[in-house]
Simulated scan of single mutants.
Amino acid sequence: MNNDTLRHPWQLVAEREISTKLRDRTFLGSTAFMLIVVLAATIIPALISGMGGKDKIAVLDDSGARIVAVADAVKGGDSYEATRTTDVASAEKLVRDGDVKAALLPGEDGFEVLGKQRVDTELQDNLREAAVNLGMEANAGRVGMTPEQLRAGTQVQERLLDPGPLPEVVAGFVNIGLALIFYITALSFGMMIAQSVVQEKESRVVEILAAAIPIRALLWGKVIGNTVLALGQIVVIAVASLIGLMVTDQADILKVIAPVAGWFVVFFVLGFVALAGLWAVAGSLATRQEDLGSTTLPGQMILMIPFFFSAFAGAEAKTVASFIPIASSMSMPGRMLTEHVPLWQPLAAIAILLVTTVLIIRLGARLYERTLLQTGRKLGYREAISLKAS
């Protein structure tokens, strides 16, 4: 054993945690489950977007309807159909309500394609090709025209009513997916941490460890070891999501997700470290595996309530939750994918979360020291706080 290891006994605990978990079926099973969830979150939206029959395109007149018909022929038929409307305002309403895929409206030099958040690239290309073909046919009937005149009135431009970082359906799935990744990872690792502490107490191994290593080093070893494992799991999941996006031809979404991924890692680490300390305390309060149902309940509630807020609450509730510690780890990265968030907001949320994490870890370390060697009976949180340090 080298001097560096002697100076950092938490490394021994961290290495033991990592090697034990890598051989644990529960850990491997949770990783496999997370892979399935993230693949579903990337593949299902693509499947949904490809269902539902023909895409409806709102038009104002016969010229627009002809372009849609030609675009449908370009696509191979049975893909697009024109929906007549009376004016631009009506077309905008149809687009905003989701009743049509897009609208083809008269523009300054031809037509413009109107979308809500984005216009499918293939749809826009097909409409542009149809407009060019029909325009050239009409212009070719005239004599003595230049190539520029021949193509006049065939430009198709894009205009979005409510541009966002991601398509609405995809953003919803990704938002829930990020929150679910944090929730399941923190919950599964948290229960494993608590169970590990109880097992060591039941087998009296903790007394041997505490005689050789400071109790706080035991805590830090468990927290750091499981944090490394959790981040490794996230990397594996990220690779799986990348594969899912590439398979479903959604690689352009990576341009939006990539900048947010770094923020997610920061929020994840801070939130996970704080919760890991609490889970370790939950294990130290128990004396048997059966006690974990009550000692881990506060940790489960701290995770469950923010998850439902970040995944299903309205915009205002999500904004508030994105500044609340722990909840911000699930809410803020999702907001950054679904709306334009000013830079100061994630920075402020990180600062609040960092302060909270430090306070929780300090409190958790004190409770862990006071309760880890208490093996006679299960302790409550109030009793643990009132205990004097040994």
Rank of each mutant, 00 (worst) to 15 (best):
A389H: 04
Q199G: 15
K54S: 11
T356P: 04
V355Q: 06
A131Q: 08
K116P: 00
K21M: 15
V74I: 15
K222P: 05
L161K: 03
V239F: 11
S19E: 13
K21T: 10
K93G: 00
G107L: 03
G380N: 09
G271Y: 04
S322Q: 08
F27E: 11
P346S: 09
T185S: 13
A258Y: 08
A348N: 03
F111L: 08
L359Q: 06
L94C: 06
D72L: 06
Q289D: 12
G277S: 09
A171W: 07
R142H: 13
T86D: 15
T338N: 13
G64L: 10
D78S: 09
E207S: 01
L275T: 03
L285W: 08
D99S: 08
E158W: 04
Y381E: 13
A311T: 07
N3H: 05
L35R: 05
T357V: 05
P259N: 10
H340P: 00
P333V: 04
G283S: 04
V206S: 00
N126S: 13
A276Y: 02
R370T: 08
L6F: 03
K388L: 11
G364R: 01
A32D: 10
I234R: 01
G53Y: 14
M191W: 07
M145K: 12
V269D: 06
K222Q: 06
V169C: 01
K21H: 12
G77L: 07
S241E: 12
A327N: 11
G380K: 05
G107S: 11
G283W: 00
S19G: 02
A14W: 09
V239W: 05
E112I: 08
G29A: 13
L347M: 14
A274I: 00
G244T: 09
D97C: 02
A327P: 03
A140Q: 11
T31V: 15
T356I: 14
A261Y: 05
G293Q: 14
I36F: 14
S90T: 14
V247R: 01
I385E: 06
L297R: 09
I208Y: 02
L379W: 08
D61N: 14
I224N: 02
L242R: 04
R204K: 12
I215D: 00
F323P: 05
A286L: 04
L353S: 15
L166P: 07
L12F: 06
I224E: 05
I234K: 02
Q117P: 01
M1N: 11
V198W: 00
R7W: 08
